[in-house]
């Protein structure tokens, strides 16, 4: 069964015909070639596939594309303004909140919701907000620093 769907992705209107079973990750990566959204575990654990749907962070490997018909979707590609990084991206860069970088798109997208809720998040706020995102390299210390700095920069 196929469905004609339309949504806004990073401010751009897109339309396509997808099967019922097409996941949002597949739609973003395969149809739109937005490969910044990563698939780590494909079992809703690791959070590398995190994007925003209607302003809220979600795991796009656990959402059907057809569920997003009419939605506003924001991916990692939608953050920077040309060469100017988003404050949260810049904070991850400044504080080296990554090593291999595979989890980073999802980390940044989850961190944005942490910052939306609180411009001065505590370690506990960050731990709770990023509980659905796994990094296997960094030990998280620099990620905490990055999220704090990013949230502050976004709030100012």
């Amino acid at each position: 069964m196929s469905h004609a769907i339309s949504m806004t992705v990073n401010g751009r209107s897109v339309s396509a015909t997808v099967e019922s079973r097409t996941l949002l990750t597949e739609f973003l990566r395969d149809n739109l070639r937005l490969t910044g959204t990563h698939v780590g575990c494909d079992t809703s654990q690791c959070g590398a596939c995190t994007v925003h749907v209607n302003g809220k962070s979600v795991k796009s490997c656990t959402m059907l594309a057809v569920q997003c018909d009419g939605a506003e979707v924001l991916t990692i590609e939608g953050l920077a303004n040309g060469e100017d990084l988003h404050p949260m991206q810049k904070a991850f860069n400044d504080h080296h909140g990554l090593q291999c970088g595979f989890c980073t798109p999802g980390m940044v997208m989850s961190a944005l919701e942490v910052a939306d809720n609180n411009s001065d998040p505590s370690d506990e706020d960050i731990a709770k907000g990023l509980a659905g995102n796994y990094c296997r390299c960094t030990g998280y210390e620099n990620i905490y620093r990055a999220v704090k700095a990013g949230a502050k920069a976004m709030g100012s």
């Binding site: 959070g47 962070s57 979600v58 795991k59 959402m63 989850s110 919701e113 709770k128 907000g129 659905g132």
Partner: peptide
């Protein structure tokens, strides 16, 4: 329950 992304859905 779960994590931030799960609670959003």
């Amino acid at each position: 329950i779960g994590d931030q992304q799960v609670r959003n859905r």
